[in-house]
Design a binder for these strands. Structure first.
Lengths: 197, 197
DNA sequence: GGACAATACATCGATGACGATGTACCGAAT
DNA sequence: ATTCGGTACATCGTCATCGATGTATTGTCC
């Protein structure tokens, strides 16, 4: 797998993640439905709990997404007379849907590896991959990304360290990012180790 | 300022950030041009260095963004005969553009506070706010957000701690998030303090 | 018994981001 | 002499997301 040379702009043209744009939402929908059938509103509550404090999901985003997945045959809906309010559409994953979820988890696009928001969503459902080796392989992709020397600020090609910056805010960015990376590296190595055992 | 109650889905309908959707890219463009006029390609290199390892910027996103900002009168372009390759358009911020940047930095939409990717972009240019009190006010919004008890996983309304989870991957999410939050809280309090002095 | 909040889903137009593709120009290597 | 890679900008169609708005039902409080 090839990593970005951060400052090499020309290589960005042909982006590596195959097709599959966006759709963190779709992953979350499939992930939650993998455990149990849910209706849209409950699904929305769970997604809001998972990622809502960072990036809220609008209703007008969720329902079209459900429709997309239904149209693709990944989930089926059964209308249930409303016991509480309006009639609910109980959503359950089809066989196809389960397969698709596992595929998305086993081979996430590069963006899901590099963007922490997306990565967390992958992690939230990675247990649904029943193959421990496949789980470890995904973790190793993240590990490789984090081991790549990278910064947010450069002097030419050389990544700048927090101590080299005058700007307290930019120094903050590097300080926080470093703490995150450190904690995640520790966890990754530990977890990959225990998956191999 | 009102914070989200994470699981209160109904309140999400009327989202708090005024208008202003998206446009992290616009902030980055304005921020880089605030220091010095640049042509598009150089701008792209800098933006790629800043956020490219997490979320690459496509050319087809950058140039329309430049056009938008130009149309809004926030930046002006001067064509320069190509000394190296094709003729360059040197971009410089207008007075309007500078004012707009400062407004964006002083009153970022809530999404820029909660989403770490966006927040880092705000931090990268926060020095351009010349008022230390205004800088501190922005940091305090982030502080308030981080002090709000929140998790990714809940038992009903109660946020779950890492230790309560069986799933090693979800435990990882909480472990990493906690390390990040801890480091950032330390830095925030320290920096807010030194800005007040 | 009427107002009101919460539940539950839907549609619409606008917009930002994207991949694909095209068009130049330049310098260096082959 | 020509190919190739880097520089520099542009357009196009597609699609996910968004805010606004609409609709209907049920339970609860006063």
């Amino acid at each position: 797998m090839t990593m970005y040379r951060i400052t090499d702009v020309s290589k960005v043209r042909c982006t590596p993640w195959v097709g599959e744009n966006a759709g963190m939402l779709e992953l979350a929908i499939l992930g939650f439905l993998y455990d149990a059938p849910l209706h849209g509103y409950e699904l929305r509550k769970r997604i809001t709990a998972l990622t809502g404090h960072v990036r809220p999901v609008a209703e007008s985003t969720l329902y079209p997404a459900i429709k997309r997945l239904e149209k693709a045959g990944l989930l089926a809906r059964a209308t249930e007379p409303g016991s509480v309010a309006a009639p609910r559409h109980v959503l359950r994953l089809t066989e196809e849907g389960g397969k698709d979820l596992r595929r998305r988890l086993a081979e996430p696009p590069q963006r899901d590896i590099t963007d922490e928001n997306r990565w967390f969503t992958v992690l939230a459902f990675l247990r649904h991959l029943d193959d421990r080796a496949a789980q470890a392989a995904v973790l190793r992709r993240r590990l490789a990304f984090l081991e790549e020397p990278a910064s947010f600020f450069y002097d030419g090609d050389r990544p700048l360290r927090a101590e080299e910056l005058d700007d307290p805010f930019r120094r903050g960015v590097l300080t926080i990012a470093r703490a995150t990376t450190r904690a995640e590296l520790t966890w990754l190595r530990e977890t990959i180790g225990s998956l191999g055992a």
